[in-house]
Amino acid sequence: MISIGIDIGSVAAKAVAYDGEKILAQELIPTGWSPREAGRNLFQAISKYPQIDTKDIKCIVGTGYGRIALPFIDKKVTEITCHGKGAHFIDPNIRTIIDIGGQDSKVIRIDDRGNVIDFIMNDKCAAGTGRFLQAMAHTLEVDVSELSLLAEGVEAQNINSMCTVFAESEIISLMAEGASKESISAGLLQSVCKKTYSLASKVQIADKVFFSGGVSKNYFLKKLLENKLQAKIKTTDNAQFLGAIGAAIIGSELRR
């Protein structure tokens, strides 16, 4: 029995194939302009893996903001519930998930079975999300993946604006004043850290804390968060797949 989880995020679309015990395959593509197209391409891509026998696929669960655009799925579940299940699979001792994706940031508290007990999400605005970092990196003419490398060990420039639009003009002014890309990068990550901290303060953080979503690849941000939250934060290479893993697990539980 194979269950497929598909997580269509605002930036990246992720798929995971799960056999009830272990992850058989995972695939990531940019979401692009059409979440429906991305979902279909993902499904085709993951089906082509030699270890996937398409006859065995018994359930497809969709999650992420694009979950409503997938006509071929059996069930749609929110990314919040999926993250809970996914984190529990990765490490059953995880109780808090900090997820920062393209357009959302959220903090989720789960119990010892991976069930959600509380969560908080950012409001409408993109402050503190991947989109914010992407836009700022663009202004700095660097790739978003370089921010941590630039920021580490540098005195951070204070950036006051949380708003993506205002922060951009603030950065332009800072650059005009001669501030370095490094110090601005550090300031940006500090600002995301502060925003995440205020979000996390609304729910009670409990050990272990897991950092997921595309922004979790920012190792320096993780370090900043650990200092600010006074907690050890775990992340893994496949942290971006957490939602898709959870969706695949929910699918396999449904068919059991």
Binding site: T78, E79, I80, N115, V116, F119, D123, K124
Partner: peptide, 18 residues
């Protein structure tokens, strides 16, 4: 904000069903 509201409220209902 209908999309974001849906995520929050559906997730809340999912947690109740759990």
């Amino acid at each position: 904000d209908e999309g974001q509201l849906k995520v929050r409220l559906e997730a809340f209902l999912e947690s109740i069903s759990n």
